[in-house]
């Protein structure tokens, strides 16, 4: 392991690092928006839309991101739809993440204590009021651990972007290995870079889980 090689590669890794963060951020925000919409449609059982979203969720959860990306990047142009690699990556990540986030929120809504729901009904809350004042405030809090776990999952999934040649962290490392063969050094930097992003998130996740569990026991 040579520190000189590592030092020389850092500027390139920095760019990959920023790109990974940037793509993850957009993907996560998009996924949360899609997830909230899906979980609301599911909660209010909006006809037709509910069925369509169910099909979307099953497709997105049961197929690999890599194939989704290949489809967007290689198969869509054959049908006349051309997009840049980064756009494909973001769309793919949101397509995948949306269903995971939706499952997280729905899990939170379903996790609200049945006594709470029944009490709400007993004091004559309408379906909307019940959702607005009882289910959502508690449900969102309960879904936070799932949300955090999904965020970590999505950031890790951005490593798959390397297959459509987006120069994020993994792609940067593979390119450098291909050019200079110093696989030990570059893989080391790669692991450290992911650790810098994910270890703090993982610690936050553990703390949140503990808090939410304490919250529910505190009831």
């Amino acid at each position: 392991m040579s520190w000189e090689i590592i030092k020389q590669s850092l500027p390139m890794f920095q760019q990959g690092f920023l790109l990974t963060l940037y793509l993850s951020l957009i993907g996560i925000i998009g996924s949360i928006i899609v997830g909230i919409i899906c979980s609301l449609v599911e909660y209010f059982k909006i006809p037709v839309l509910n069925k369509i979203l169910k099909v979307y969720i099953e497709i997105s959860r049961n197929t690999p991101l890599l194939i989704q990306l290949f489809f967007l990047y290689y198969a869509f142009p054959a049908m006349g739809i051309k997009m840049s690699a980064q756009l494909c990556g973001i769309i793919g990540l949101i397509f995948l993440g949306g269903s995971y986030m939706s499952a997280g929120f729905s899990g939170g809504f379903n996790g609200v204590n049945k006594k709470q729901v029944e009490s709400g009904k007993a004091i004559g809350l309408s379906r909307w009021q019940l959702a607005r004042y009882v289910i959502f405030p508690q449900g969102f809090a309960l879904s936070i651990p799932a949300l955090a776990a999904n965020i970590i999952f999505l950031i890790k999934e951005t490593s798959i972007f390397t297959v459509i040649a987006i120069p994020e962290l993994t792609n940067t490392a593979l390119d450098l290995i291909g050019l200079y063969y110093n696989s030990n050094e570059y893989l080391f930097v790669l692991v450290v870079a992911y650790a810098i992003i994910l270890i703090p998130l993982s610690i936050i996740l553990t703390l949140l889980e503990r808090r939410v569990r304490y919250g529910t026991f505190g009831n």
Partner: peptide
Amino acid sequence: EFFRIVPTVVLLFLFYYILPR
């Protein structure tokens, strides 16, 4: 935690490159 934090793609490359060398 190691296997959770390192993406699977990277794990595959780690073993693929480092075991032989």
